[in-house]
């Protein structure tokens, strides 16, 4: 039995449309792949170049240096303190901003973002000026901050906390207020509802905020240089080590320390991706 000519034409048209659609899809994904791949290539190329520039010997010598060992120790301690301080502040701020509506909220929200958009050097300079004011100087007579270890933590905290606040705000935004309301009807006070329901449900967001704050603190350089100085065996952290080694022409040590920081950053980022992948970090606020 012969096919209807109209059916044959319709069949050919469908096939042609399908072919065009498949070709268009392929071109689309190839274009995206080329654009994304070029950036990926650049990132990997810089890491590979660093790796080939240094050797296990350079890395070993860097780790033997007492200054660099001090910088590693101070970096680990200051980043951990910064992370704890950031969470201490970011969790209540994030919760309040997500749950409470008040006049001037947009302005307050914008102020919390200032450390993210401000040049890092300006943050350091602003901290330096703040501690030169009368109240700042009075505080420093009791508790020295500027060019001392507390200034390192404070400089890291200024930036890292802003990222933690943003993350916690997004996290609490995505937890339905219904859960708290149910907890209230079950006999909880607001505080009990927060500790027993909201915070446990926000744990992935808290982990993401913590890792992000830690990573930001580790990479902070500008505010530390201005506010804490770069005194060896005093206020030197890993980022300032890279700067100091570069400034004396010791490129091998600078690269070795850079690779240590890259390794730490990769570990932290992997932690974010694996443990915090279901949290709100990558979603819009």
């Amino acid at each position: 039995m012969s096919r209807d000519p109209m059916e044959t034409v319709a069949g050919a048209s469908i096939e042609s449309t399908a072919r065009r659609s498949r070709q268009s899809d392929t071109r689309f994904y190839v274009c995206l792949g080329i654009l994304g791949g070029s950036y990926l290539l650049l990132l990997v190329a810089t890491l590979v170049a660093d790796l080939f520039y240094t050797s296990p010997g350079h890395l070993w010598r860097a780790l033997q240096s007492s200054e660099i060992r001090y910088a590693i120790r101070l970096s680990l301690i200051s980043c951990t303190l910064t992370t704890l301080l950031s969470l201490w502040v970011a969790v209540p701020i994030g919760y309040l901003m997500a749950r409470v509506r008040f006049p001037g909220q947009r302005l307050v929200d914008a102020i919390f973002d200032i450390p993210i958009v401000l040049p890092p050097l300006v943050i350091g300079l602003s901290l330096l000026i703040l501690f030169q004011t009368a109240p700042g100087q009075a505080l420093q007579r009791v508790f020295p901050v500027t060019y001392a270890i507390p200034s390192v933590v404070l400089a890291q905290f200024m930036v890292a906390c802003a990222f933690a606040v943003r993350t916690m705000r997004a996290t609490f935004d995505q937890i339905s207020p219904r859960h708290e309301q149910v907890a209230l009807t079950l006999g909880c006070t607001r505080s009990q509802a927060f500790w027993m329901v909201v915070l446990p449900e926000a744990r992935r967001g808290v982990l993401t905020a913590a890792t992000l704050a830690w990573a930001r603190a580790l990479g902070e350089f500008g505010p530390i240089l201005v506010f804490s100085g770069a005194t060896r065996l005093r206020t030197e952290v890993l980022s300032t080590t890279v700067f100091l080694e570069l400034s004396v022409g010791n490129l091998e040590a600078a690269v070795a320390v850079s690779l240590l920081m890259v390794a730490a950053a990769v570990v932290v980022l992997l932690l974010i991706r694996t443990k915090g992948s279901e949290s709100s970090f990558n979603r819009p606020v």
Binding site: R178, H179, Q181, V182, T185, L186, M196, R203
Partner: peptide, 30 residues
């Protein structure tokens, strides 16, 4: 009065179960 003092049980449309608690812990919560 606050919700806790009203003696009213509430079941919302989607259940609003607490994602970190087992069924047993839900029954024990209040």
């Amino acid at each position: 009065l606050p919700p806790a003092a009203r003696d009213v049980g509430f079941v919302p449309q989607d259940g609003a179960l607490f994602q970190h608690l087992t069924v047993r812990r839900h029954l024990e919560f209040a």
